[in-house]
């Protein structure tokens, strides 16, 4: 599941750039950006991941009126959502972006997702590891592919310890 439409908004880009600690004016100052080579505010390289904001079913966002597995005063006992690809105790193993063009506020991208490869490996600390790719393609209003994102999730049989 993913968002079908991703409106690119200046305020969202500004907040995203702040969150990743990037003070470059091209992400928040339209006047300064006009004097740069791209000629306008553009999205930072990993901004496309935030299309999750527009996915009505995104499983890592609390839904109004629905139980949430994160804690309130105490743990809720609601089973954790499955993460990291297609399920299990999962983590994000790898992420790749291919840029055919960098997008600007005012555009609306159309998103298509498809599963990629799946493979297994024996982990040193985490037992058996299952990797699965998810490919997300972002198209502009003229139907041109602007960005392809490939995420790799890994499911482990037990919690990975950090040394």
């Amino acid at each position: 599941m993913a968002a079908k439409k991703f409106p690119i908004e200046a305020g969202h880009i500004m907040m995203f750039a702040r969150a990743v600690g990037d003070p470059n004016p091209i992400y928040h100052d339209a006047d300064a950006a006009a004097d740069t080579e791209p000629g306008s505010v553009i999205a930072p390289p990993t901004f496309y991941q935030s299309s999750a904001q527009y996915d009505p079913d995104y499983f890592l966002r609390p839904k109004i009126g629905e139980p949430w597995f994160g804690s309130g005063k105490n743990p809720t006992g609601i089973p954790p959502k499955r993460t990291g690809g297609d399920g299990g105790t999962g983590l994000h193993a790898e992420q790749r972006f291919e840029y055919f063009r960098h997008v600007s506020p005012g555009e609306t991208l159309t998103i298509k997702t498809r599963p990629g490869k799946t493979w297994e490996r024996q982990g040193k600390r985490g037992g058996n590891l299952t990797f699965s790719e998810n490919i997300t393609e972002y198209f502009d209003e003229s139907g041109e592919l602007v960005v392809r994102a490939t995420g790799v999730g890994v499911r482990t049989e037990k919690v990975v310890e950090s040394d």
């Binding site: 990037d22 470059n24 080579e37 791209p38 553009i42 390289p45 990993t46 992420q95 972006f97 291919e98």
Partner: peptide, 17 residues
């Protein structure tokens, strides 16, 4: 990514993984 774009310039990336 900030380090990469500070180095290569705005809007210049074609791939990053």
């Amino acid at each position: 990514g900030r380090m990469v774009t500070d180095y290569v310039g705005d809007g210049r990336l074609t791939a990053y993984g």
